[in-house]
Simulated scan of single mutants.
Amino acid sequence: MKKQQIFDCADSILRSGELPSVESVAKRCGMETDEVVIDFAAWQSALPTRVRMSDQDDGMSPGVPEVITVAVSHIWQQAVDEARHHFERSEREVGVHEEESRRISDDTLNEVQQRRQELENRLREQGARLDELTTQNKALEAEVSVLKAGIASETTMLKQEEQIRSNLEHELNHLRKTHEDTKRTFDQRIKDEQRHTLEAVSKAEVDVRYYKNALEKLRDEVGKKESALTKDIHDLKGEIAKRDVKLETQVTQLRSQEDELKQFKHDAGNQSRELAKVNASLLSETNKTKRLQDRIQELETEIKRLNQKYLHATSDWSRRENVIRNSLKDKDDELIRAQARASSLEKRIIGQDEEIRRLNAKI
Rank of each mutant, 00 (worst) to 15 (best):
Thr289Arg: 15
Thr289Phe: 09
Thr289Gln: 15
Lys290His: 11
Lys290Asp: 06
Arg291Trp: 02
Arg291Cys: 02
Arg291Met: 09
Leu292His: 00
Gln293Gly: 06
Gln293Pro: 12
Asp294Gln: 09
Arg295Ala: 03
Gln297Thr: 10
Glu298Ile: 02
Glu298Ala: 06
Leu299Ile: 02
Leu299His: 01
Leu299Gly: 00
Leu299Thr: 01
Glu300Trp: 10
Glu300Cys: 10
Thr301Glu: 05
Thr301Lys: 05
Thr301Phe: 01
Glu302Trp: 02
Glu302Phe: 05
Glu302Tyr: 06
Ile303Glu: 04
Ile303Phe: 03
Ile303Asn: 04
Ile303Lys: 12
Ile303Ala: 03
Ile303Val: 08
Lys304Ala: 13
Lys304Asp: 12
Lys304Leu: 14
Lys304Tyr: 08
Arg305Cys: 03
Leu306Asn: 03
Asn307Cys: 08
Gln308His: 12
Gln308Trp: 04
Gln308Glu: 13
Tyr310Trp: 08
Tyr310Gln: 06
Leu311Gln: 15
Leu311Thr: 14
His312Val: 11
Ala313Gln: 11
Ala313Gly: 08
Ala313Asp: 08
Ala313His: 04
Thr314Trp: 06
Ser315Tyr: 07
Ser315Trp: 05
Ser315Glu: 13
Asp316Ile: 02
Arg319Lys: 09
Arg319Pro: 01
Arg319Gly: 01
Arg320Cys: 02
Arg320Tyr: 04
Arg320Ala: 05
Asn322Met: 02
Asn322Ala: 10
Val323Tyr: 00
Ile324Gly: 01
Arg325Thr: 10
Asn326Pro: 08
Asn326Gln: 13
Asn326Ser: 09
Ser327Gly: 11
Ser327Trp: 06
Ser327Lys: 15
Ser327Val: 08
Asp330Ala: 10
Asp330Lys: 14
Asp330Trp: 01
Lys331Ala: 04
Lys331Met: 09
Lys331Tyr: 07
Lys331Gln: 08
Asp333Leu: 06
Asp333Met: 04
Glu334Val: 06
Leu335Tyr: 01
Leu335His: 02
Ile336Gly: 00
Arg337Phe: 03
Arg337Asn: 07
Ala338Tyr: 11
Ala338Trp: 10
Ala338His: 14
Gln339Glu: 07
Ala340Arg: 10
Ala342Phe: 12
Ala342Ser: 14
Ser343Cys: 05
Ser344Asn: 15
Ser344Asp: 15
Ser344Ile: 14
Ser344Met: 14
Lys347Thr: 13
Lys347Met: 10
Arg348Asn: 03
Ile349Pro: 00
Ile349Ser: 06
Ile350Met: 10
Gly351Ala: 13
Gly351Ser: 12
Asp353Asn: 05
Glu354Asn: 01
